[in-house]
């Protein structure tokens, strides 16, 4: 019994750790997509946050300043994305691909120039990292991510801002007629997605790791997007979806060398099969097999005011 319980608690904490950056990014994506802008740039926005957090934390020896700087950087990169897709009406998916490439190359280029190390920043000393609280179990970033969920629920469903945001994502013409500034709401939604995704990225760099490496988000932005779709663009299900994905990945991490899992599965657990669970689930959900999937109606459609 004893050696069965220990791995469970290990997996649970590991799941929370893995889910934390995804919760930030998926909640961010929720603001963007609820306002009508498809955001596949979450991956790149996370990287913007991760890089900035690593550099600022290293230079100033303060993880909290690093975290805040990351939020600003994420907002700034999201603004570039917003200008392209809202002002210039660029295809939102194509521009998202562009932002993802930019954030693969630019941080690596800059870290190469600043630290003369190919694609990585300097190692941050342990005392300046965002270390977990409560007997080294839960990071303050995880707590923040969990607390963010009720806040998002309140903002989205109980405030005039949330109502307007949802309105421009569903029916921008009607919202406009009612006096809502459609484009301003979309800028806000996209910038919020950048700030939140960057928070997730910052946690990756100065919480889970102690430096930035090129492409360190390793697809987490896309899993966040998958969680958002699986959750049908609602905040509480987003949390559950992220935790579920965190759980599957935690199992994948523990799978190598965990005897009880080998017994459970009757042999080696191929990590690849656990890794693809989020992606397969997303396809199934999108096809409507688990209840109708309903995206915001105006998702992906640029808005142009009638003259």
């Amino acid at each position: 019994m004893e050696d069965f319980l220990i791995p469970i608690s290990i997996i649970l904490f590991s799941a929370i750790r893995v889910a934390t950056p995804m919760i930030f990014a998926a909640l961010g994506g929720l603001f963007s997509e609820r306002s009508g802008v498809i955001n596949i740039a979450l991956e790149g926005l996370m990287l913007a946050g991760a890089f900035t957090a690593a550099v600022v934390t290293y230079e100033l020896s303060n993880p909290y300043l690093g975290f805040l700087a990351a939020l600003a950087a994420g907002g700034l990169v999201a603004l570039v994305f917003a200008v392209a897709v809202i002002k210039f009406e660029a295809d939102q998916v194509v521009a998202g691909v562009g932002i993802n490439f930019l954030m693969l190359g630019l941080p690596a280029l800059l870290s190469g120039a600043i630290y003369d190390a190919s694609g990585s920043t300097e190692q941050i000393a342990k005392e300046y990292l965002l270390t977990p609280w409560f007997n080294n179990t839960i990071s303050p970033a995880s707590i923040l991510a969990f607390l963010l969920v009720p806040v998002v629920v309140y903002v989205l469903y109980k405030t005039p801002f949330g109502l307007r945001l949802r309105a421009v994502g569903e029916n921008p013409e009607a919202a406009d007629a009612a006096g809502v500034k459609v484009l301003a709401m979309r800028y806000t939604g996209v910038i919020m997605s950048g700030v939140l995704a960057a928070a997730g990225g910052a946690y990756l760099a100065i919480g889970q790791s102690s430096f930035f490496t090129r492409g360190m988000s390793a697809g987490k932005g896309f899993i966040a997007l998958a969680a958002l779709i699986l959750a049908k663009w609602r905040p509480v299900p987003v949390l559950l979806a992220c935790l579920f994905f965190g759980f599957t990945e935690a199992i994948a991490i523990q799978a190598q060398g965990a005897d009880f899992l080998k017994n459970l599965f009757g042999g080696d657990v191929p990590v690849q099969f656990i890794e693809i669970i989020p992606y397969v689930l997303t396809i199934i959900v999108l096809a409507g097999f688990i209840g109708a999937s309903r995206a915001p109606k105006a998702l992906g459609i640029p808005y142009r005011k009638e003259k």
Binding site: V80, A84, F88, E89, A90, D91, V94, A95, V97, G98, I99, N100, F101, L102, L104, G105, L106, A108, L109, G112, A113, D116, S118, G119, R214
Partner: peptide, 24 residues
């Protein structure tokens, strides 16, 4: 001296963003 091959992705990204923005 300082530039790495990561410049390739930056150029590619900027081209994607610009072409997409000029599309209209």
């Amino acid at each position: 001296k300082y530039i790495t091959k990561d410049l390739v992705e930056v150029l590619q990204a900027v081209i994607i963003l610009l072409v997409a923005s000029l599309q209209k």
